[in-house]
C-alpha cells in the first residue's frame, strides 16, 4: 500500500471525529445531565481507542501535509508573495503546535 492511500484513509477518521465532536457539543447544549452522560461515554475503551487512532491520524496528516503545502503555493498569489518554502513549513508547525498547546491548556483548565 502506498502512503497516499493511508493519507486518504485518514479521511474516515476525520469524518468520524467531526461527528463525535458534534455529539459532544450538542449534548453540552442539552444541559448538565446530557453533558455528564456524553463525558461518561467518552470513557468507554472504544471511544478512547478511537481517539488514540485519531491522534495518530492527525499527526500523520499534519506531518505529510505540512511538507506538501509549501510547494503548492504559487510564486505569487495576486500581489502576495508567499514566504520561502522552508520558512512556510516551519510556520505551519509553529501554528499547529501553538494552537494545540493553547487549546489543550484551555480545555484542561490550565488557563481561563
Amino acid at each position: 500500500m502506498r502512503l497516499y492511500t493511508l493519507f486518504g484513509a485518514t479521511g474516515i477518521v476525520y469524518l468520524l471525529v467531526g461527528f463525535v465532536a458534534l455529539r459532544v457539543v450538542w449534548n453540552l447544549g442539552e444541559g448538565p445531565e446530557a453533558w455528564a452522560a456524553v463525558l461518561e461515554q467518552l470513557e468507554n475503551p472504544i471511544y478512547i481507542a478511537f481517539h488514540a487512532l485519531a491522534l495518530v491520524s492527525v499527526v500523520f496528516v499534519a506531518v505529510r501535509f505540512f511538507r506538501l503545502f509549501p510547494k503548492a503555493q504559487p510564486a505569487f498569489i495576486g500581489p502576495v508573495v508567499p514566504p520561502p518554502r522552508p520558512i512556510l513549513h516551519a510556520m505551519l508547525y509553529a501554528a499547529w503546535i501553538g494552537i494545540t498547546v493553547v487549546l489543550s491548556a484551555i480545555l484542561a483548565g490550565v488557563i481561563f
Partner: peptide, 16 residues
C-alpha cells in the same frame, strides 16, 4: 519538474 506542485498551484489559481 514537480508536477504535483504545479497542479496544486493551478488549483489555487483556478479558485481565485
Amino acid at each position: 519538474v514537480d508536477p504535483a506542485a504545479a497542479v496544486n498551484q493551478a488549483k489555487l489559481n483556478a479558485v481565485i
